[in-house]
Design a binder for these strands. Structure first.
Length: 927
RNA sequence: GCGGAUGUGGCGUAAUUGGUAGCCGCGCCAGACUUAGGAUCUGGUGCCGAAAGGCGUGGGGGUUCGAGUCCCUUCAUCCGCACCA
């Protein structure tokens, strides 16, 4: 082997570590640039080739920015709290901290082998008390702040108390729970407990009874984004709804800012759209419907107040508090049965039956305030307690769900919107409702003839005038449940006095995680921390036994990287003023509705506190695509131990079986290795084609069970880290999902060795010429500088790799071994393949690191040509080429082409109608 | 159902502003070197055709001198959300 990549890579990794070349500090003489990778959870399985994809891209970009003169912060750390280590602890009794440390060591070893330019002196771990001190600290701040909607920011609870003392709470416009109004005098006469209960309704971190996603198998609650189709995302266990007292973060206070902020950041449109849908803002009206013979009203939320004249019945969620009160004795049995049935059904069953119409009549009637008509009140589970008011006015003519319900129970349907340009028709003849927001109001009293948009405004205005409704904005976003009944997480800095929670003084942080005898709930169902001895304050007050969820520690880690060892503050003012926020964040789209929304909220809250300098934490975000696996198959003839090659498999009845991709090369199976692989294949027989056994293949998720996992360590062993880095980039655009195909890696491997040979003679002896470069050689170099630079700037890493290949191929043809060319090329390559670049850099006679050089500047003069080979097309079809000077005026080009001998052949005697000349692009002759 | 993305050779892909479709690499074919090759080097390789030539960017239609790129329509695949009133 000419290039000994294994030795070389180890040598320079050691050198970079010893010289601390990637360590950065605040340096006001240079502009800063912050490149961040998503926080990994160190799982026991280690990395597969899909994991480092984003890290490689961000590493290339970091190195590039550094060469361009930026002071680049590029940190890495671990999201170290998490369920797998705790599950392992439950099974084996091993403390999760030990498992986590082992996994981290393994991760670090794998990461180091790839040659990343991380500043490891800034490493953080969420499970480190020095780190979670600040997670706990932020929780305390959230507890002591409320959201003032008038100021549109978080303010201290102390200011709220002052206002209560002065004038009660009637004038306060806060994001808060359901509060009764009180005067200053009433406040003063409340006891401590009552006051605390009141304040709790305002806090940004608050305790409340909520319906939660309870996962019995995991013994904990899960956030909405941790549940998918009624199963836990981690582990796939069933999840049920349960009412529990939980800590919540009032993220809904920030709904509008989270939505608006999206317009100011450079994220992919699809990701922003996912967040917009998750926040789910909808504008409409709140309307009160009176009940026949009762004083209560039913409040509904609707986005279509214009259809109120078509509201022919109402539907309450089965859990609605009015259900019990208004149900008539005759209907009681039926309603109770229905409510009971809804309660017992799991989330999963409920979702599976979305299309089934069900419901029960309460026997009560409401009055439509606009038609004055008596309309029946039903309950049905298609109305959700958790959205709006848990009650709707049903407009069957213009809402498909209401339509289905009306049809099923024989309720009246009245058309109140007519399609533009169409006459109203009898709804009895309809197959579906007319849901569109286009149309004209009909059968609707005073709004008849108005367009939908105007009708909405008119109805809302009228409702306001009559005091029965108002304009209303609703969000789908829910407050974030912040309690987990788990051990391996941050303890809450909270104790209880008379049943009310209080926060610990800040100087008592961090509140460390106590040892426990088992990582399970207690017999009475309390979380594992309840097992800890002496889990109380020095005064003897009991401490909170819940712990925080995974997103607590990952919501502010990018800030802590700026000043990771500060014991006095989360991060210093100097650090935040210099590093500001993340310029480039690379990671997976799977965090769209979790981490990426919580982190924005966390940052906005700290912004309100005056701690961060930008409201948004991540300026630009790129989602790397998934690397899928490429599985190989062998085809077993049914009932035998004979395997038929893929090309012949249609002649037999076969079962495809996954085969380990490591036994296959270029889809050709190593049959001997296959026999040795598993005992059942020891005496396998093969039916070959052309003397080979060819495997089938398919693109699937990379997973152990499919035998298609590619481990970076193995590939580095075989090809080196530089080849792995370049190949991962060469695979395709960063944002696209693509299958991992090991065959292609050979091409990049060849490139690396071709590059090496450019600096060496036939005997692998360094051979660098000091002769000045020719113009042709300079053209190759400068074209490459420009291309690679442009490509990195637009994150097109794959095309830059191809530019390097073209460059090396061309220099090879020119037999160029000149320093004037090779030296700048080495710097270009160093962003992608740092190890070979560092080796070549030293081979060129330097004693400093290639990491600290300057990106070469391309010269325009070597990019322009003096002639251009025009493609000449006839009616759009290219027929021949004509080389002309680049500065020839279009008029002369036209003349030249018409005189060209080939032209006559293609005009075939027909008259030329028009000649289009685009200078230095194309000539098109129209005949 | 709603929202988003993607469809280009046998495969991964390229074409940055509407201007030569297929760069680069894999694979494949042929040749050279070689004891051997899953090494290296050279040449070829979109499809049909002996060639001339024709066809060709999921399908259909349109705008244009000119469309992978713009517009309309349709199909397929993937992802996200999903009774959100």
């Amino acid at each position: 082997m000419d290039y000994k990549f294994n030795e070389v890579e180890k040598k320079w990794q050691q050198y970079w570590r010893d010289q601390q070349v990637y360590k950065v500090d605040i340096d006001h003489s240079k502009p800063k640039y912050y490149v961040l990778d998503m926080f990994p959870y160190p799982s026991g399985a280690g990395l597969h080739v899909g994991h480092p994809l984003g890290y490689i891209a961000s590493d290339i970009y970091s190195r590039y920015k550094r060469l361009r003169g930026f002071n680049v912060i590029h940190p890495m750390g671990y999201d170290a709290f998490g369920l797998p280590a705790e599950q392992y602890a439950i099974q084996t009794g091993t403390h999760p901290a030990i498992t986590t440390d082992n996994n981290i060591a393994r991760y670090r070893e794998q990461l180091d082998k790839i040659g990343f330019s991380f500043d490891w002196s800034r490493e953080v771990r969420t499970s480190d008390p020095k780190y979670y001190k600040w997670t706990q600290w932020t929780f305390i701040q959230l507890f002591h702040h409320w959201y003032n909607k008038d100021a549109n920011k978080a303010e201290p609870i102390s200011s709220l108390i002052e206002t209560f003392e002065r004038e009660g709470n009637t004038k306060i416009n806060a994001a808060c729970g359901n509060v009764d109004y009180f005067t200053a005098d009433e406040w003063k006469h409340m006891d401590e407990r009552r006051r605390q209960e009141m304040l709790m309704q305002y806090r940004l971190a608050y305790l409340d009874d909520t319906m939660v996603n309870w996962c019995p198998a995991l013994g904990t609650v899960l956030a909405n984004d941790e549940v998918s189709e009624g199963l836990s995302v981690r582990g796939g266990h069933p999840v049920e709804r349960k009412s529990m007292k939980q800590w919540l973060l009032r993220i809904t206070a920030y709904s509008d800012r989270l939505l608006e902020g999206l317009n100011t950041i450079d994220w992919s449109e699809s990701l922003k759209e996912i967040q917009r849908n998750w926040i789910g803002k909808s504008t409409g009206g709140a309307m009160h419907f009176g009940l026949e013979g009762r004083n209560e009203t039913i409040e509904v939320f609707t986005t279509r107040p214009d259809t109120i004249f078509g509201a022919t019945f109402m539907v309450l969620a089965p859990e609605h508090e009015l259900v019990e009160k208004i149900t008539t004795p005759e209907q009681k049995a039926e309603v109770e049965a229905y409510v009971q049935r809804t309660k017992n059904r799991s989330e999963r069953e409920r979702m599976a039956e979305v299309k089934k119409v069900s419901g029960a009549f309460t026997g009560a009637y409401a009055i439509n305030p606009f038609t004055e008509q008596k309309i029946p009140v039903w309950i049905a589970d298609y109305v959700l307690m958790g959205y709006g008011t848990g009650a709707i006015m049903a407009v069957p003519a213009h809402d498909s769900r209401d339509f289905a319900f009306a049809r099923h129970f024989g309720l009246p349907v009245v058309q109140v919107i007519s399609k533009p340009g169409e006459a109203p028709s009898d709804p009895a003849s309809w197959d579906e409702s007319y849901d569109s927001k286009e149309g004209i109001a009909i059968n609707s009293g005073f709004i008849n003839g108005l367009e939908v948009k105007d009708a909405i405004e008119a109805v809302v205005a009228e409702a306001e005038r009559r005091g029965i409704g108002r304009k209303q904005i609703n969000y789908r976003l829910r407050d974030a449940i912040f309690s987990r009944q788990r051990y391996w997480g941050e303890p809450f800095p909270v104790y209880y006095k008379d049943g009310m929670p209080y926060t610990l003084p800040e100087d008592q942080l961090p509140l460390g995680l106590p040892p426990v005898d088992a990582y399970l709930p207690t017999e009475t169902g309390e979380p594992p921390l309840a097992r800890a001895k002496n889990w109380k304050t020095s005064e003897g007050y009991p401490l909170e036994t819940n712990t925080m969820p995974g997103f607590a520690g990952s919501s502010g880690y990018y800030l802590r990287y700026m000043d990771p060892h500060n014991d006095e503050r989360y991060f210093s003012e100097e650090a935040i003023k210099y590093w500001e926020n993340v310029d480039l964040y690379i990671g997976g789209a799977e965090h769209a509705t979790g981490h990426l929304i919580y982190a924005r909220f966390w940052n906005m809250f700290l912004y309100d506190l005056g701690m961060t300098v930008h409201s948004e934490p991540f300026k630009k975000l790129i989602n790397q695509g998934m690397i899928q696996g490429r599985s190989n198959f062998v085809y077993r003839i049914a009932g035998t131990n004979t395997y038929v090659s893929a090309g012949l498999k249609n002649q037999y009845e076969v079962q495809p079986l996954h085969v380990d991709v490591n036994l296959v090369h270029n889809d050709q199976l190593d049959t001997e290795a296959f026999r040795r692989w598993q005992p059942q294949f020891a005496d396998a027989e093969f039916i070959l084609e052309n003397g080979k056994y060819i495997c089938g293949w398919e693109v699937e998720k990379m997973s152990k069970s499919k035998y298609n996992v590619q481990n970076p360590d193995d590939l580095i062993e075989k090809y080196g880290a530089d080849t792995l880095r370049m190949y991962e980039m060469f695979l395709g655009p960063l944002e696209q999902s693509k299958p991992w195909d090991t065959q292609g890696i050979e091409g990049v491997f060849r490139f690396i060795r071709k590059l090496w040979r450019l600096f060496h003679d036939e005997n692998n002896k360094p051979d660098i010429s000091e002769t000045p470069a020719t113009e042709a050689e300079l053209r190759v170099l400068h074209r490459t500088i420009k291309k690679v630079e442009d490509d990195i700037e637009r994150f097109s890493f794959n095309t830059a790799v191809s530019a390097f290949m073209i460059c090396v191929n061309e220099l090879n043809e020119l037999h160029c071994r000149k320093r004037e060319i090779l030296q700048p090329l080495t710097i270009l390559v160093s962003a992608y393949a740092p190890h070979i670049a560092e080796e070549l850099w030293h081979l060129l006679g330097h004693t400093d690191s290639v990491v600290q050089q300057q990106w070469p500047k391309y010269k325009e003069e070597y990019l322009s040509e003096n002639s251009f080979s025009y493609p000449v097309s006839f009616n759009g079809k290219t027929r021949f080429k004509l080389t002309l000077p680049v500065d020839m005026p279009a008029r002369d080009v036209e003349k030249a082409v018409l005189e060209a001998p080939e032209t006559a052949k293609y005009t075939d005697g027909k008259p030329v109608r028009k000649v289009i000349v685009v200078p230095n692009r194309i000539i098109n002759i129209v005949i």
